[in-house]
């Protein structure tokens, strides 16, 4: 199912809202962000690389890249952002549709680039 079909079915809106948070340390939730999932992007792995959520939930992915301008892309939900190292990039997605949604690094980062991916599993 393509993203626009998902949105049509749900009558809702998935919102990619990349925000940058400077500095290090624990990532705190801001109002409206929903549950915050912290991720680390490092050549050539996302940690964690499997995320579980419930349909309809709102999530904010707070992604800290440590070594490269990795790309975070979840194309089936229309989400993508560059991940400048040394910062936390926040990506909010509302009204998650049920399904298995692949995410990947889409900025070619080296020998293991093609294995740098993960899965968001949204239970109905």
């Amino acid at each position: 199912m393509k993203r626009r079909d998902v949105l049509r079915c749900l009558g809702g809106v998935a919102v990619a809202l990349p925000l940058l948070e400077l500095g290090v340390g624990h990532v705190r939730a801001a109002e409206g962000e929903g549950r915050v999932i912290e991720l680390e992007a490092r050549r050539f792995r996302y940690t964690p690389n499997e995320i579980h959520a419930r349909a309809g939930e709102t999530l904010t992915l707070a992604i800290r890249s440590v070594d490269f301008v990795h790309g975070f892309s979840m194309p089936e939900l229309g989400l993508r952002s560059d991940l400048p190292p040394g910062r936390v990039t926040r990506i909010r997605v509302a009204d998650l549709p049920a399904g298995r949604w692949t995410f990947l690094c889409d900025n070619f980062c080296g020998e293991g680039h093609e294995e740098m991916n993960g899965m968001l599993i949204v239970e109905a």
């Binding site: 892309s73 979840m74 194309p75 089936e76 692949t102 990947l104 889409d106 093609e114």
Partner: peptide, 12 residues
């Protein structure tokens, strides 16, 4: 064209 973007089979 967007063949399979989740496999990086696309041009941005």
């Amino acid at each position: 064209f967007d063949l399979v973007p989740k496999w990086d089979w696309a041009t941005r």
